[in-house]
Design a protein around this nucleic acid. Structure first.
Lengths: 191, 191, 191, 191
DNA sequence: ATTTAACCGAGACGGTACGTCTTGTCTTATA
DNA sequence: TATAAGACAAGACGTACCGTCTCGGTTAAAT
């Protein structure tokens, strides 16, 4: 165990940690990622700059911590009886997450940074923000879809069209198109 | 027309323009986007800094010019008799473009910047890098796919799964999965 | 010659140079050396920080440039007929310079820094702030002082007692003591 | 008395005190004053940082404690029959102290700090490092020097030329010049 | 042929974020 | 209650890049 050894020195300030994460969330919504500097985060959080570098070292690491928990929670949907409805509700929720939620904004900022920096790419891959929620809903409907491909590919087919639209700067999928997309998938997977 | 009036003064240096675009391509491949600064581009291209700002003003604008022409060319595929083969070849080519081609790298860097900056988002939307090529191949196979949704959604269904994989930092779709994905789409669209 | 080669690029800003030197002088008087930071100088002078590092690189180098010219001017005395008076006037002027003049403050700050940093020690030695003025007055009275030691030692004997008092934090020599000291020197040097 | 009341709690660690003073001496010799930070002293001494602030509060205060006792001891000379020899030996010893001894280095560092900081100036004045030893030797030779000025001025005349040379970054007085200087003083003071 | 206008490269300018360092204070567990 | 360890807020350090500006020099069309 690591909690057993009674660490010496002043312990880490939990309030400073929370202040940083909240500041990042707020600034992302208010000013956007480009205007969010380490210096600015520190000032906004009322925290020393060194304190940030001590625990995170990178804007991306802060973002990961700021969004993974919220993301998992926001993307989780309750099961429906109708598989079609189940998939539609999930995808609509994902759309809302990506364009409305602060956690979704953080996620998109991370995806953006990942295109510029291999380290962030790894960070994002390890965080595994979307897959668990997609796997969960797919596992629920899998029984009635004998031709569904393995989960990984099925998840890409499910979320890819919506996700790429948003990342390429277009509007999210309108409700009608979400339904049409799901109907396509069901037709293919039931075949 | 605007090219008719024969502007006075020294004309724009075509060699400087090409030097900048090549420098951007090279630096993107060698050092990555994060290490690519306006100052660095100017030095690498052997060009004054002001000259860059005179004609482009933004890294993103240079990237757009550096990739749109190449992208259109690299993504264009010759028609096949077999619609399935046609789609598979296109998607495999898109995968290569995204992870191998300098133009693809530039495109991904642009997508990254678009997450952080609304201006770049607009730029990227206007450049319309992927859609024309996807529409072209879809138009070719449309005849034999009576249930295919409108082109925009169909294009998202076609490229979304591959695109989102790459943008989220995972490997591109392996050949087997490309085939499986196309088979799903055909099954749904032929229905 | 070096002025012949027609330097490229924007020439150095003389106004920025003067602004920095004046800011240093003012801040030294108002806030003291310890409170004078590179950042503060830049802000006070209305100058970019990099501009300072481009031309000076060190607080000490700025101080040297800020005080050498003024020092030489302030320490120069006009000849008197009476050698005793000549020496007294010079020494009294040196006392005023050390405790009143901004240039003298800069000089003392430099001497302080020289105790901590060998580079500054060299800088100070090369600047040769005091010696020329002392040599000048000693050369004038040398004729009537057959036993005067070589100029270097004589200069130390002349200014050392006053200088060390001030540097060790005591008051400057009072007028009575200046006269007594000069009388001692004359007695020894006329012997 | 204050030492009588047997203070409660853990007594001050004498070993920590010595460790700090030794660390300061060593670092001054090895790295120089500029590279000597409170943090560095604490690490080198294997001592908590707070412990230093509790007992000294300032680098200057540590330096004073680190040098006053040693200085007094090193500057004390045994009486000679010949007053000339007495003065020469003292002055030569002072030169060695200033450029060789760790205590002398600490003293010069203090003089340096005193130029930047009025508090240190007061500290240095109160410590009275040089005067007692100079007064002692002057008192011994005073009998044979009827024209010697009051001790304070005489001491300045004795040590000033050497001291100012060293503080201004030049070499210490060579033996020949020490003798010449003393001979001047004797000539003036015997007059 | 000369003038004029816009271009070109180089490089200094005022700003500002970077990541590191040190300061003096504080909060732990230990002695 | 002193101690060593070490986290804390604050802020200076020197570097790098931003976008602008100001030079001397070049290149063509208009005079």
């Amino acid at each position: 165990m690591d909690t057993d050894l009674p660490r010496r020195g002043r312990p880490r300030s939990e309030s400073a940690r929370r202040a940083v994460l909240e500041a990042v969330d707020d600034m992302l919504v208010e000013d956007g990622y480009a205007a969010m500097t380490m210096r600015g985060i520190a000032e906004r959080a009322g925290v020393g700059r060194q304190t940030i570098y001590r625990w995170w070292g990178t804007k991306a690491e802060i973002l990961v911590e700021a969004c993974v928990v919220d993301a998992a929670e926001e993307l989780q949907t309750s099961p429906r009886k109708d598989p079609r409805k189940d998939l539609i509700v999930y995808l609509a929720g994902l759309g809302q997450f990506l364009v409305r939620s602060p956690a979704g904004l953080a996620f998109r900022a991370l995806v953006g940074e990942a295109q510029h920096d291999a380290t962030v790419r790894g960070l994002l891959r390890d965080a595994d923000v979307l897959a668990p929620s997609a796997y969960a809903v797919l596992a629920r409907v899998q029984g009635s879809m004998p031709a569904m491909p393995p989960l990984e590919l099925a998840a890409d087919q499910l979320v890819g069209p919506l996700l790429s639209r948003v990342l390429l700067g277009r509007e999210s999928l309108p409700a009608k198109d979400i339904a049409a997309h799901i109907d396509c998938l069901i037709a293919a997977w039931r075949r």
